[in-house]
C-alpha cells in the first residue's frame, strides 16, 4: 500500500503511429501518497517526466467518462481508481481494448458514438399531428422513472464495450452501451419509438448477438448494469413478437392550469424610471 511519498512504477503503453508500427511499454517512477489516483499519476508523468504522453481527462471526478483505460488489465476510470486499490507498486496502464488507438492511451471512440447515435437516443413522441408537444410537460410518476432511471446513469465512457467479449470478435456488434440505451428509451413511458428501435437492434449484429457474458455489468463504473438492460430488451422484443406484452399506456400531458396567478405588482419606489 503506498504511503506518503512512496515511489510507484507506472508501466504505460506508448504508441505514436507517426513514429512506430507497434506499441511499446515505458516505465516511469511516480511519487504517490494516500489518495493518489491513477489519473494523478499520469498527470505527474505528463508534467514532470514525459510531456508527450497522450491521454484524455476532463472532470477528474468520475462523471464525464473521458479517462477510461485498462489499469492492471481491468477497464476502469483513471480518476476513479486510487493507486492503493491496485495493491501493487507496479501499475500497468494501457488504452481501452476493442477500439482503434489514436495515440498512447487515447482511443478512437467515434465508432462507439456512431453506434450510440444509430439507436436514436432521444425521446420519440409525436402527437396525432406528427409533432412533439413542446408547450406542456409529460406526466411521469416515480414508479415510471424507476423503470429506466438506473440505465440513464450511463456516462458513455466506453468501458463496457472494452470489456465485452462479443465486441472483441465482432466489430459490427452494436455493443452493450447502445443496447442498454435502447432499453432505457423503450422503457421510458414518454417515448413511443420502440418499434423504430427494435428494427435497428434486430439485426445480425444486434441484440441477439449478446451471449450474456456479464463483463459489461461487472466493469461499468456507474452501476448501470447494461447486461440487465439487454436481457430486459430481449424480453420486450420477444413479448412484442409473440404479442404477449401488456399494451403500453400512452403518456398523458399535465393539464392546463385552471387559473393563472396574477402578476405581482412592483412597488413604485423600487422601479427606476
Amino acid at each position: 500500500m503506498p504511503d506518503k511519498n512512496t515511489l510507484v512504477t507506472f508501466k504505460v503503453q506508448k504508441f505514436d503511429p507517426d513514429k512506430y508500427t507497434h506499441p511499446h511499454m515505458q516505465e516511469y517512477s511516480v511519487p504517490t501518497k494516500r489518495g493518489t489516483t491513477i489519473l494523478d499519476g499520469l498527470l505527474y508523468i505528463k508534467e514532470h517526466l514525459d510531456s508527450t504522453l497522450a491521454f484524455r481527462t476532463s472532470c477528474r471526478m468520475g462523471i464525464c467518462g473521458s479517462c477510461g483505460m485498462l489499469i492492471n488489465n481491468y477497464p476502469r476510470l483513471a480518476c476513479h481508481t486510487q493507486i492503493a486499490e491496485c495493491s501493487s507498486l507496479l501499475i500497468t496502464v494501457k488504452p481501452l481494448p476493442n477500439s482503434p488507438i489514436i495515440k498512447d492511451l487515447a482511443v478512437d471512440l467515434m465508432p462507439f458514438f456512431e453506434k450510440h447515435k444509430s439507436i436514436r437516443p432521444y425521446i420519440i413522441q409525436e402527437n396525432k399531428n406528427g409533432q412533439i408537444d413542446l408547450t406542456r410537460e409529460y406526466v411521469q410518476i416515480p414508479e415510471q422513472v424507476d423503470e429506466y432511471e438506473q440505465f440513464s446513469y450511463c456516462i458513455k465512457c466506453g468501458i463496457c464495450i472494452s470489456a465485452c467479449p462479443t465486441s472483441a470478435s465482432d466489430v459490427n456488434f452494436l455493443g452493450p452501451q447502445a443496447l442498454a440505451q435502447t432499453y432505457r428509451y423503450c422503457a421510458d413511458n414518454r417515448d413511443s419509438g420502440s418499434a423504430i428501435r427494435f428494427k435497428i437492434t434486430e439485426t445480425d449484429h444486434g441484440v441477439w448477438r449478446c451471449h450474456l457474458a456479464g463483463a459489461c455489468s461487472e466493469a461499468c463504473p456507474k452501476g448501470v448494469d447494461p447486461g440487465l438492460a439487454i436481457q430486459l430488451l430481449k424480453n420486450k422484443m420477444a413479448q412484442q413478437t409473440l404479442s404477449a406484452g401488456r399494451k403500453e399506456n400512452t403518456v398523458a400531458l399535465y393539464p392546463q392550469p385552471q387559473e393563472i396567478k396574477p402578476r405581482i405588482q412592483v412597488p413604485p419606489f423600487t422601479a427606476k424610471k
Binding site: E202, D204, W208, Q240
Partner: peptide, 9 residues
C-alpha cells in the same frame, strides 16, 4: 421480427 422469432425457436 424474423430474427427474434429465430432466436425464440
Amino acid at each position: 421480427m424474423l430474427k427474434t422469432r429465430m432466436h425464440l425457436l
